[in-house]
Design a protein around this nucleic acid. Structure first.
Lengths: 342, 342
DNA sequence: AGCGCTTACGAAAGCGCTTTCGCAATCTAT
DNA sequence: ATAGATTGCGAAAGCGCTTTCGTAAGCGCT
């Protein structure tokens, strides 16, 4: 059994294999300039001794870092924790480690985290979560990331950003449209939308999808109440309260993510408003608890775990001339929170 | 505005401040041997230039690493994602970065992850999640971690482990007892327990609590059906199914975590068994969705976010002669999933 | 046999930092 | 006033790795 050994260095391996430090390094890195015979010997000695390279020395000397930085809004938000799960899964298979930090949906803070990750010399940065419609901050982030990529770093984002990097694009607009169409076909017309902050591209895109569904039926979203609050459960509660007060004849609520939908449901329960009897509710994302809510939530499924994996896959490939894009697809999951209006 | 600068080194700062490299290093590290006057000048120049130390060089040269490794079962399990949230929150304040990896509740895999973190020279390791009652593996992990601590690393765990390190101890036994007492006082006697794998200390402790509650009322847990399955939602479904089949007169189910309770509720809903009308259900943890379930779940609240924070706090302090322990406390949260038996 | 060219490897120069060591300069005790 | 202890700082030695550069051997060619 390979002992953990206190301080096993590459020199030790080299010595044991009867080669120089340089040759050992090359052999283990798979570089050429070493005969296959010698390389094999070095590898076998290294394995035998249980050698693990010191990543700090390796990175300092100019090698690539084996850690990936992941920026999420909050890991304890199910949407992001599922994405993180996907990233970690694939990273694990690749022998990479994942550093997670919170942006808190604050563009300034996010920028600071990105700087921190770059300073830490991570080899890959994945930014999960919506872009912001703040041109100054996006430009600043872009400058930072461009320089980082220039220096060999790889970047991928999940969501629509204007950063010019490889991206996994959740099917936000199409999903929004599917949601709108579904409710319209059920016969709802007095629909309200519970939206997160308008500054998030995710919110804008989903909303645009809903608008498109309305438009194709000769309606306009401008005639609907669209309440913008925080893109979390509490925001959903607030918005629902406002809708009940200002638009009591509403028969369906579209929440632009499941967290908000959960807030909406909780407020409706509190007010003893039957779902879907008196009010239909739909969400977006299909986080894993959506099926266990009361009532089980009709929503748009996004493959969060896959999205995490896809983002890392993109980042693992060498950079292409043009930024790559991968769409996720979506799926309308009809459960018990929707029905025809009375 | 401090420019991100391509490659700003400590020498540059030193030069600009008119001191030697050594002095600059000492000044920024807050070591003494530097007059306060000079130190202040160095600090101000460093800030002005926007200098950020290269963590690889720093660590390689023998300084402490500024990253903390966190081992969880799965980040996309709400229990762990909330803990991770707490760790990241505090780490962020301290300027630390958090590397997360999955153990998958597989002791072998966990050991591998620990080795990986050590090889990565993280400065702190936090292991969240139950210990295992596998003496060989715990011993092996202990050896590894002892050596790591010998070399200056800091370790803290969340849960009962036999690793001899600082620990945050969830109030598992007391919580289990509270749960048992509560149901007994409601008048239930035909209680079934839905438990995770017996190899987890968390499961053992919670079960012991339930047993204690029964014992103090002259009953024995040996007369109750205790079904061991996976410690996740699906396990809860399986267990519920078995209980309904083998013990149809059961009036209350204790699930040893909320994930399993959610599985139980989903199975009961499928079978159209009224909760709490025909069956009471309780969980354990109070993950954030517990309040939004159908029906809202009666459970034991554990302060997961705080637990994450506490663990990091412990690890941040210098190591004490004896391993420290912090208990978390618990709180019985009565919601709508429980009632008196018919 | 002699020329250049490729190939396989070793010596040694860093990467950017922390830390030991040594040397002035200043201070305390006699 | 002088020996000894402090204090404040700089020079330089690594930390463990990658990589450039140099060299000796092996190849085909004239």
């Amino acid at each position: 059994m390979p002992k953990p050994g206190p301080r096993l260095r590459l020199v030790d391996v080299a010595q044991r294999a009867g080669v120089s430090l340089a040759t050992a390094s090359r052999a283990l890195a798979g570089r050429d300039g070493v005969s296959e015979e010698v390389a094999a010997r070095v590898r076998s000695v290294s394995r035998e001794l249980g050698y693990v390279a010191n990543p700090f020395a390796r990175t300092l000397a100019g090698g690539a870092s084996t850690t990936v930085g992941l920026v999420v809004h909050q890991v304890d938000d199910p949407y992001f924790s599922e994405i993180a799960g996907g990233v970690i899964q694939l990273a694990d298979q690749q022998g990479l480690l994942v550093q997670i930090c919170h942006s808190g949906r604050d563009p300034d803070h996010e920028l600071r985290q990105i700087r921190h990750l770059i300073a830490q010399r991570v080899g890959i940065i994945i930014i999960a979560g919506s872009g912001y419609s703040d041109p100054r901050l996006e430009a600043e982030a872009k400058a930072e990331l461009d320089a980082y990529q220039q220096a060999g770093g790889r970047v991928a984002v999940i969501g629509r950003h204007s950063l010019g990097v490889d991206a996994v694009l959740p099917d936000n607009e199409a999903g929004g449209e599917a949601l709108g169409s579904f409710l319209l076909e059920l016969g709802h017309t007095r629909i309200a939308v519970v939206a997160g902050t308008g500054a998030l591209t995710t919110v804008a895109d989903r909303l645009a999808g809903v608008a498109a569904a309305l438009r194709s039926r000769g309606l306009s979203i401008d005639d609907l109440p669209v309440v913008h609050t925080d893109f979390i459960r509490e925001g959903g509660r607030d918005a629902a309260e406002r809708i009940l007060r200002d638009h009591p004849d509403t028969t369906a609520i579209i929440a632009l993510n499941d967290a908000m939908a959960m807030g909406v449901l909780s407020m409706l329960r509190e007010r003893e408003i039957a779902v879907p009897g008196r009010m239909s509710v739909v969400g977006f994302d299909d986080v894993s608890v959506a099926a266990d809510l009361a009532p089980a939530l009709t929503t748009i499924r996004l493959p969060m775990t896959d999205m995490g994996r896809m983002a890392l896959e993109l980042a693992l490939k060498p950079r292409a001339a043009r930024a790559r894009r991968r769409s996720t697809g979506h799926q309308l999951i009809v459960r018990d929170s929707t029905g025809a209006p009375r």
